[in-house]
Nucleic acid binder design. Structure first.
Lengths: 203, 203
DNA sequence: CCATGATCTGAACCTCGATTCATATCTTCT
DNA sequence: AGAAGATATGAATCGAGGTTCAGATCATGG
């Protein structure tokens, strides 16, 4: 015998995989899922179409990986912002604001993550991350109820509703045909509404 | 010359079209868009696959027509319920309740209308109907603000948020894997939350 | 009952992009 | 250097399902 993969080749492999993911991220940010065909992807990453399959079993898996990567990044950012606050009101405000500002900053990507039609396997990732946001919001709300800062309520439902409210309110400004508007008043209005919804005093 | 379509043939034609739409409605309610292939559709309607194209220019158009039909029916029901009330609070309550109860009553169809991935042409219908709900809610909210029943707010945004909140809160119970739960407390919670969100006193 | 035109039929066709695979290139170890 | 395993290449293949179309069937008016 005479060849076993080593750290160096492993690194190259990783780098190639990363370049593919990066190319997919770019294409997604530019033209959504439709733009992320295998051939375009390979061209962008500077590899042959067949090479894609050395790293991912199928297109769906690749897209799912990209989704996981990007969505995970977003969720982490929101989580971090929430963690940095203490009162339920401030935490919810941070959640809504960070989510909204980031989405409005990368509208095409946000649209792809939030609403654009996708293959079932990717849709599953979407649901997973949506659940992640639900859970985050739920945790905040439960803590708020416990501390007496928020009135008693079905925290799970309220959490889903808050996430839904933010998502839908953003969809207008986000949608591919949406007009560019000043984010600040939009985000401020959404935030206030969400705080009212869960019974937090906004001011 | 010797043949011109007449009332009778026109009726047959209409009936066939209706049967196709009905078959599509059934398939949609059973297995979503995936189940609504042309061949399955034709089989269900008792016609040949080619005949479908005597009534619809393409599959997308057929699906769009079905969507329009079903979604229009839903929107009408909600509109009617809203029209039957006078105060903004009662109207909003009716909107949320009727929307929710109907959705929970036909979960698979509601899922198809609300969230299931679709072709762009149908997606457009979805946006149209979503806008219809937004508009309905916005009208109610504006009236409420004018009459002083609701505090000043960005009515358009609030409307979108309310619709989003209801949709997302329902998605859990609706989703194909969602567990069957008693609708009443769910709907009641969503309603209260929405009323709080727009600043209506709930009790 | 025939001519005419509309509608129906369903197997064949087509399209488009994901996937494959024979071949070439590259990496490591002796 | 040479063997052997791993990875890259990209043109060829394949499949699924929407769409077409030549012929069959049917309704109408003369």
């Amino acid at each position: 015998m005479a060849y076993r993969p080593t750290a160096r080749t492993e690194a190259t492999r990783l780098a190639h995989r990363e370049r593919l993911l990066d190319a997919a991220r770019q294409l997604l940010a530019e033209g959504g899922y439709q733009a992320a065909s295998i051939s375009a992807l390979a061209r962008r990453a500077g590899v042959a179409t067949g090479s894609v399959y050395n790293h991912f079993a199928s297109k769906q898996e690749l897209l799912a990986a990209v989704f996981r990567h990007v969505a995970g990044h977003e969720l982490d950012a929101v989580r971090e912002a929430v963690r940095a606050r203490s009162s339920a009101g401030e935490q919810l405000r941070a959640l809504v604001e960070v989510f909204s500002y980031r989405a409005l900053h990368s509208p095409r990507t946000a649209w792809a993550l939030l609403a654009e039609p996708v293959d079932p396997l990717v849709e599953e990732e979407r649901l997973t991350y949506r659940r992640g946001y639900h859970l985050l919001a739920e945790t905040v709300i439960v803590a708020g109820i416990t501390s007496g800062e928020l009135p008693p309520q079905n925290a799970q439902l309220s959490a889903a509703a808050v996430i839904g409210a933010v998502g839908e309110a953003l969809l207008g400004p986000l949608s591919p045909v949406g007009a560019r508007t000043d984010p600040e008043p939009v985000v401020e209005s959404i935030t206030e509404l969400c705080l009212r919804a869960v019974g937090a005093k906004s001011a």
